[in-house]
Amino acid sequence: MSAGKGAVLLLGAGSDMARATARAFAADGHPIQLAARHPERLTEDRADLETRYGVPVSLHAFDALDTASHAAFLSRLPELPQVAVCAVGYMGDQAESVADPEKATLVLRSNFEGPASILAHLANAMAARGSGVLVGISSVAGERGRQSNYVYGSAKAGFTAFLDGMRHRLAPTGVHVVTVKPGFVATAMTEGLDLPEKLTAQPDEVAAAIRTAVAKRRNTVWVRPVWRWIMAIIRAVPEPVFKRTKL
């Protein structure tokens, strides 16, 4: 496999962040594998990548929640990717998650169990090969449980810890793991929310940060660095005080 031009797999490829990331890697000449629950909705994205960048693009059905299918999904890919980016995520609605624990379970599984499962399969295959980069898009919401979104946040906290642990385990194998903490991003998932402009990244920024992180083998990436300090402060607030806030 030629260095740097191996295939890049996007999991959850219909998301705005994944689309932007696919473009960033295709621009560098990488073949692209787009995996999503409804690959038939991605035919225009495939045409786009092929037309703009002239790289081969393949579409694959992938259901993050159907963990039993993950091994078979992997075996059907045209090649084991050099880079796999997991952009699978589901915010849900915190109020609904609180009222109905079944709904909370869907959020937990979508953000932790499913992504962890597919990355674990990829990790084993890449470790056997002795190369590869895994990128997990986690969230600043995982830095501390807060009343306003701890269901989503706790799943992301679990995912972050899982990525940390995999990075540690895979270090001797030559496989690298990148954890991305984007902060607010202007995507379909956050549309309609009133997000502060200075704290909100565009999907292109996330994509550029991922591409750099893969090239430079960075461990954890805060897309907008200010988020690192915001979350440090939020983590530092003592619990008795924290309980009186509305964060």
Partner: peptide
Amino acid sequence: GMDRMLAFDPATGQLTA
């Protein structure tokens, strides 16, 4: 959000987007 290029014909220079 609808910013995909769909096809290019190098024979005519026609771009569909």
